[in-house]
């Protein structure tokens, strides 16, 4: 039994459509795994299954040996799984800083009563929160924008803030949904470095869904390919690049 994330025979059905069927793969602690596939292959659905937005029709999902399905999204986040959203879901009316602060809430020792009495322990914790939030924002070059509204950020910064916010929950596994979408090549290079950096610094396992092959091939240690909800290949970037089924799925022609 491996410790990281383990999916076995996971299936979800919407009406008559099997969006994901009999999917199995795992992400070991500290590993960086890519999940790729053509549009509509079910990648985001896999994220929604892991994070409790959907419940699988069949199959098992375990994280650190504990079953995931049946728990609410916030409970799964507490187990140590955090995610970003493909279609950016920041808290748009909150400031950049408060977006991060909101994500730290589950690690608070103080509760609602302390926020009323505002005692020394509360003040101290608020300050250490602030320091940690700033540290994370700084890594992603967002510290100067801390008081801006999240919605006023440009597209790339919004994507970066999504990652910072997910990191603020102190995850062991980070799920990134198309983090490079809409970024220019230079930004993408920066992003790749940042993902490697945070992975090492915070000892994260990362599961990455991404369209940009350069990004995926550049940083992933292992890649799983799905098409129509079914896994068609898994292996190192090199193995995937010359896998006939993968080439067929992407180019729509047989590789022979």
């Amino acid at each position: 039994m491996s410790t990281g994330l383990e999916l076995q025979d996971v299936t979800i059905q919407f009406g008559g459509l099997k969006a994901v069927s009999d999917l199995g793969f795992h992400v070991a602690p500290g590993e960086l795994v890519g999940l790729i596939g053509p549009n509509g292959a079910g990648k985001t659905t896999v994220f929604n299954l892991i994070t409790g937005v959907y419940t699988p029709t069949a199959g098992r999902i375990h994280f650190e040996g504990k079953p995931v399905p049946g728990r609410k999204p916030h409970e799964i986040t507490r187990m140590g799984i955090a995610r970003t959203f493909q279609n950016i879901r920041l808290f748009s009316s909150l400031s950049v800083f408060d977006n991060v602060r909101a994500a730290m809430m589950m690690h608070l020792k103080h509760g609602i009563l302390h926020s009323l009495t505002r005692g020394p322990a509360f003040q101290e914790e608020e300050q250490s929160m602030e320091a940690r939030a700033l540290e994370l924002l700084d890594i992603f070059g967002l510290a100067d924008a801390r008081d801006q509204d999240a919605k006023s950020l440009n597209y790339g910064d919004q994507r970066r803030l999504e990652i910072v916010r997910a990191l603020a929950t102190q995850p062991k596994l980070l799920l990134l949904d198309e983090p490079a979408a809409g970024m220019n090549p230079a930004e993408k290079d920066d992003l790749m470095k940042l993902i490697r950096f945070i992975k090492d610094r915070y000892q994260l396992a990362v599961l990455l869904v991404e369209h940009d092959m350069k990004v995926v091939m550049g940083i992933c240690e292992r890649i799983a390919v799905i098409e129509y909800g079914v896994k068609i290949a898994e292996g190192t970037p090199k193995e995937i690049q010359c896998h006939p089924k993968v080439i067929e799925a992407y180019l729509g022609v047989s590789a022979e």
Binding site: H74, T77, A82, R89, L90, A102, L108, H114, L116
Partner: peptide, 28 residues
């Protein structure tokens, strides 16, 4: 004071995006 504390950011997070709030560990 409830709303302005770190704990209280949760109220505003729920208002802005309930699904994202849940994914950030907030018990909506």
């Amino acid at each position: 004071s409830m709303v302005n504390s770190t704990y209280g950011r949760g109220f505003l997070a729920v208002r802005d995006d309930e699904i994202a709030a849940g994914s950030m560990g907030i018990n909506t």
